[in-house]
Amino acid sequence: MPPKEQLLKELSDAVVGMDEDRTVATSQAVLENGIDAYEGISQGLADGMDRAGQLFEQEEYFIPELLMCSDAMYAGLDVLRPHLKTVADGEKRRFVIGVIEGDTHDIGKNLVKIMLETAGFEVIDLGRDVPAQEFVDRAKSVGADFIGISTLMTTTMDGIREVFSLLEREQIRDQFRIMVGGGPISQGFADRIGADGYAVNAAEAVRVARKLLGSD
């Protein structure tokens, strides 16, 4: 196996293996061998996160494992990102994400953020316990392509509907693709409130977002 492919494979393996130190060392080796930082990110780090996402969906990995993979991935990103030649930030799709007001459970939302960032989205994280109006205001001010709303509690599902009504009141609903998710949310609920997409987990969220982009 040529050194380049081998190094990229090692980088991907280090991420899947939850090994932060090895990810950093391999990222440095990638640079020392004159491999393009972008390739290191896309074919090494992101590939590793992709595989971690698959293991998560197959119930080989659970949330602690996925979080450790993402720590390794971000540590590698810190090494490689300064060496990116030109950052095509203008190309990045903006994704405003948050947990709706009334709920402070944000583990799922954080996982979606990690997977979206890995997949090249620019994620604007509003955090947890976010009022409906703030989703609207921030999505407008940053020129978001997507709004992602999550909740783990049935108590707060009405707040999600409110984001839709606020956008409709301002007649700007069509400017955004809206994705919803979280424990009590189902495809049926997503359809009823008129969401563009629903994802059952973080890995699925990336596929749904990409599919929505493809349907432009």
């Binding site: 939850m18 949330i63 602690p64 494992e65 979080l67 450790m68 720590d71 944000d106 583990i107 954080n110």
Partner: peptide
């Protein structure tokens, strides 16, 4: 912090 906590279960 729950994210940190979940990682520390392993780390």
């Amino acid at each position: 912090d729950p994210m940190r906590f979940l990682k520390e279960l392993a780390k």
